[in-house]
């Protein structure tokens, strides 16, 4: 193998390795398909296919993430406010061990769907760059809003986006 060929092979190999990291899901893109176990043992698996045609608010959270814990009870209120209009909230828990997430849920019961992603497979697929990260998805499967972090006042932005997505139903 010539030096030129070796260089080409090296560059191609490096490009492959560096390019293998997942790209983040952005607004306007289609929702990646996922299928995750329910955090509650014995409950059915939660998959994107089973939620097709609904307005989804997908949130990645963990028990060690303080802003996540602030946001979840507020999402529960939002869920009760808009569930009759077709809103479905899926709060994907990334705790490993899962028991850490379940301990929080024991004190703070939430009424929406909570899948468990202890290995971070879905988080990697979505290209989560911070915790919490959330994605509002329209009934057509298009990502309408990507929201990272949770600060006071963020709920207004999120609720306005949810209302807009539901109006398009």
């Amino acid at each position: 193998m010539s030096i030129k060929q070796t260089m080409k092979t090296t560059i191609a190999l490096l490009a492959m390795i560096l390019g293998s990291s997942a790209l983040a899901v952005e607004e306007g893109e289609q929702l990646p398909s996922f299928s995750l176990a329910n955090i509650y043992p014995g409950q059915p698996t939660i998959s994107s296919a089973g939620l097709a045609g609904k307005t989804l608010y997908i949130d990645f959270w963990a028990s060690w993430c303080a802003p996540c814990l602030t946001s979840l009870p507020l999402y529960n209120e939002m869920y009760h406010k808009y569930k009759d209009q077709g809103l479905e909230i899926i709060a994907i828990n990334v705790d490993n061990p899962i028991e850490d997430g379940l301990d929080f849920l024991e004190d703070t019961p939430l009424d929406f769907l909570i899948p468990s992603d202890p290995e971070g497979d879905a988080a990697e697929m979505f290209g989560v760059i911070g915790m919490p990260s959330s994605y509002l998805v329209g009934p057509d499967g298009e990502v309408k809003l990507v929201h990272m972090g949770f600060r006071s006042g963020d709920m207004d932005i999120i609720e306005a986006a949810v209302q807009s997505a539901l109006a398009g139903n």
Binding site: I3, T6, M7, T10, L13, L14, I17, L18, F60, A62, S63, W64, C65, V94, D95, N96, D100, D117, G120, A123, E124, V128, I129, G130, M131, S133
Partner: peptide, 24 residues
């Protein structure tokens, strides 16, 4: 030398970033 350099570059990929969901 080139192969050594390529090996060195490849070994850099062993230093991976802690992902946001792993920060627990």
């Amino acid at each position: 030398r080139l192969l050594g350099f390529a090996g060195l570059l490849l070994s850099v990929t062993a230093c991976t970033q802690v992902q946001p969901w792993e920060r627990g």
